[in-house]
Design a protein around this nucleic acid. Structure first.
Length: 287
DNA sequence: AAGAGGCCCTGATAGC
DNA sequence: TGCTATCAGGGCCTCT
């Protein structure tokens, strides 16, 4: 489900609701996520205060006291739900668990606070939670990832240097998290459309100007998506159940067979599989 | 060593 | 109605 904008929306609503709140209880209903939950998961979190909720790339970071962290990755289908307990403090109340706001199945983890709880749901279980005990280890955890698009480090010099001796397709480059982290399969199509660059273009053929355009448009698209609350294809919602609106702004994603939206272009949006993922582009105005 | 491709998993939808 | 096939926002691993 989530690329950087959706994860940021989840982070914002999480931070608003659980910052400075103490975890009362953790219930693990299924520990077999992408990585098996460590045995001390429950003990690690219980009775600790969440100092704040931050994010790097597509990872949510629950900051705990004494430089301890719990990172959450939503994979393809993970969602976090904020459920308020109308019956106040009764943590074992069944109606609280069976909230109509929750999906019926795959509610794997519940983090219970006073009068509300956060529930992690993930049908495909590609998501995961990991515990990290020092800042050093937190940095190490993300060390293989490239800068976010907003980072000053994501500049032309870095770009040109990275693509040196590489011949992969530009679509493949932009979803490579080692190059730039946070862009996923939806936004790469939108960024390349805005840049008028064909997703098949080999990176060794990109000139400096094109690199610059990609850098700028990556920021533009992701920021716009964040402003619109993310993209709700299928069923993305923030923790409080509101949908995003950026899907209404898609120029190419899932628009195969439809007219190109670029003014003056008579092209038709095409869908092709690149790097094992559906890719959408106009083969008239994207060269 | 870069790049292509497969795999982890469940559910929704399309096609017969 | 009910079967099977295909596809889905990610990331990691293996093979060539």
């Amino acid at each position: 489900m989530p690329e950087l904008p959706e994860v940021e929306i989840v982070r914002q609503s999480l931070d608003k609701n659980i910052k400075q709140k103490k975890v009362k209880k953790v219930i693990i209903r299924n520990k077999n996520l992408r990585f098996k939950l460590p045995t001390h998961f429950k003990n690690f979190l219980e009775n600790k205060k969440i100092t704040r909720v931050t994010r790097f790339s597509k990872y949510i970071i629950l900051n705990l006291p004494k430089n301890e962290f719990c990172i959450i990755h939503l994979g393809m289908s993970g969602t976090l739900h904020l459920i308020k307990d109308k019956n106040k403090n009764n943590l074992t109340n069944l109606s609280f668990y069976n909230s109509p706001l929750l999906p019926k199945n795959h509610n794997h983890i519940e983090i219970i606070f006073n009068k509300f709880k956060v529930v992690y749901n993930d049908p495909r279980r590609f998501g995961f939670f990991q515990l990290i005990k020092t800042i050093k280890n937190l940095n190490k955890r993300f060390s293989h990832l490239g800068p976010e698009p907003f980072d000053k480090k994501f500049n032309v010099k870095y770009f040109k240097n990275f693509i040196k001796n590489k011949k992969k397709k530009v679509k493949d480059l932009l979803i490579d998290q080692k190059f730039v982290s946070g862009i996923g399969n939806i936004y790469v199509s939108e960024i390349l459309f805005l840049s008028k660059i064909n997703p098949y273009k080999k990176v060794n053929l990109l000139n400096k100007k094109e690199c610059n355009i990609i850098i700028e448009n990556s920021k533009t698209i992701l920021l716009k998506a964040i402003k619109k609350g993310g993209s709700s294809i299928r069923d993305f919602k923030n923790t409080e159940g509101s949908k995003g609106n950026f899907q209404d702004s898609f120029k190419v994603y899932q628009r195969n067979g439809l007219n190109c939206k670029r003014i003056g272009c008579k092209g038709i949006i095409t869908k092709k599989v690149i790097a094992n993922r559906s890719t959408f582009f106009c083969n008239t105005c994207q060269n």
